[in-house]
Amino acid sequence: MLMQQLLNGVVVGSVYGLFALGFTLIFGVNHIMNMAHGTVFMWGAFAGLYAVMLFDVPFPVAVLIGALGGGTVSVVLDWVAFRPLRKRGAPEFSSIVSSIGASLILLSLAQQLTATRVMRFPFDIFPIVVFSFFGLRIQLLQLVIIGIVVLMVIGLLYYLYRTSFGRQIRSVAFSESTSKLLGINPFAINFQVFFISGALAGIAGVLIGIVFNSVHFMMGEPLLLRAFVVIILGGLGSIPGALIAGLLIGIIQTLTVAYLSAGLADAIVFSALFLVLLVRPTGLFGGTAAVARVTRR
């Protein structure tokens, strides 16, 4: 029973990780807290859902369209909400405010579109196949989700650390002014960062929509709130940190719901965030170098 819950926790947690990855990527490169990342996730799920409903596309295509949808919304978000502020050299605070505004708009549009209904992917979107070994029941869907997350993470790491685009992104993250001197085009970098981040969120949206069998306009908010916890726990801008913390939060939440009470899950998860900030503000996996970027001088 415990093993079963752990497994469920790992599946949910890996999707949290995927979602948080995009959030932490933007944070790491642009030092922006994208409060609209939850609505990007939701629009990604919508894109996948409508593709299935209107054109009856199969699961892999739905995931792909979810990624495209999320990426597109995210890039538009960057242009509308963040670029005007970036030009002015505005501080973190205004980006938070502006992205909250953008998320209200995106939320409201989704609400209008769906008339506040909860929608579902058709049941046959993914065949129900269950393997069982050692008394553990694993669905094919769960395996595929873990597979997709692993694939995306390897892809992202490869992109960031093995390609010249990735080197440019990392150099902008390190120092934007220096990168400009090196002739790196920040426009192209931001486009990539926001698209990748949105695509990851979109994929997470489709997967979560299928796993929990519901897609609705408010689905992004709890995920965004959890992403905050994940990036604090994992250390800001840290990719492995986001993944490990994502898994941890997924497991904690699943176990709390299973053994204590559903209502307590939030209290425990968010108290964990508080505790980490109190004891180790750089996150559980952040290095000492991060201290300067977390605490004040």
């Binding site: 938070i96 916890v229 604090i232 009470s261 209290a267 503000p281 977390v294 605490t295 004040r296």
Partner: peptide, 25 residues
């Protein structure tokens, strides 16, 4: 008080969630 701005925002946002979850449960 010793944390940078974004982290203050995140932590206080968590506080709102904690209080909400207590009043609900």
């Amino acid at each position: 008080a010793r944390l940078r701005g974004v982290f203050q925002a995140l932590a206080t946002l968590a506080l709102v969630q904690i209080v909400l979850s207590i009043t609900l449960n």
